[in-house]
Design a protein around this nucleic acid. Structure first.
Lengths: 162, 162
DNA sequence: ATTCATGCAAATTTTTTGCATGTTC
DNA sequence: GAACATGCAAAAAATTTGCATGAAT
């Protein structure tokens, strides 16, 4: 029922290759270390692309399949770490456990229009939304990382079927 | 892997005041029954208001405190039911389990500002966001039900701690 | 009377943690 | 070498389920 279709077009990452030094220095800034496990987890998310999300168990399984064993406990620890570093982000859709995806570029705002009946999803952008997010964050003294607008709606054919 | 099927596609969110007959007939339409437990759970969400969310354990505890015992298992079953009926809406914030809040037509745009580090949550409103949602929905011919903006951010103290 | 819902406890699933060992800086 | 991270297994949460009993229609 997860209707986030990412048709073939996978936008080029355009960001730093994570297995590399971006991760290393981000970690070092926090007094933490670059380990193969952390690289593997992040690299996996980069491999699957920006639109797709994985849960802890899936990350563990997929790494096993590619001969890059990382214990499940470490997967959990790493997901939380990368997430708190802003490299991954946790999803809003609670289908089972928590799920994560590669964090999009800083401050980018991408929004979803989703039909609650059939799951059809359209993406759109709107700078007014980002502004609203910035205003809200500013008002509470928060530092904005990202804002996502979810519009729940009925698509034309589902609306007709009602 | 678990088959996590919600009980079928649901009708558009109910518009009715829930404690009363709206709930009864919504249930009956589905061949299900009005029970004190279901009323209690829904009434609790109405009592705390539209902006606030609760997890299963919290619902259970709060009902205990108000002398309205509902077993935890039933709380889980009821949350899922009310959610699939469109009376509650599920959301997921950083820490803890799944959380639910009252789904309301009246409150179509209420937004969350969430600290991704400590989970602190602030609610805000912004009509520009609703307009953006309406414009997007209109552009694709969708009928808008609700729009929720989630702003991921760092609260002042967490930002300082980084 | 029939069908559905509840409560309880046990079973599952998901996530966290203690600790000995191995790694990174 | 010191501090940190990993793996493992056990513990703790979170959620679901089987079944006998109780309630709603």
């Amino acid at each position: 029922m997860t209707a986030r279709l990412s048709p073939g077009a996978q936008p080029p990452p355009a960001t730093l290759p994570a297995g590399g030094d971006g991760l290393r220095s981000s970690l070092h800034d926090r007094g933490q270390r670059l380990t193969p496990q952390r690289q593997r987890v992040l690299a996996l998310f980069e491999r699957i692309g920006e639109g797709s999300h994985l849960g802890a168990e899936e990350v563990h399984q997929r790494l096993l399949r590619s001969e890059e064993r990382v214990s499940l406990a470490t997967v959990y620890r790493t997901l939380r770490l990368l997430s708190s570093m802003g490299l991954l982000q946790e999803l809003e859709l609670p289908e089972g456990g928590r799920r994560f995806e590669l964090a999009s570029d800083a401050h980018r705002d991408h929004h979803h229009l989703v039909c609650v009946r059939c799951g059809r999803t359209e993406e759109f952008e709107n700078s007014a939304v980002l502004q609203a997010g910035e205003r809200a964050a500013g008002g509470y003294g928060f530092r904005l990382l990202e804002c996502v607008l979810n519009v729940r709606a009925l698509c034309p054919s589902c609306a007709a079927a009602e």
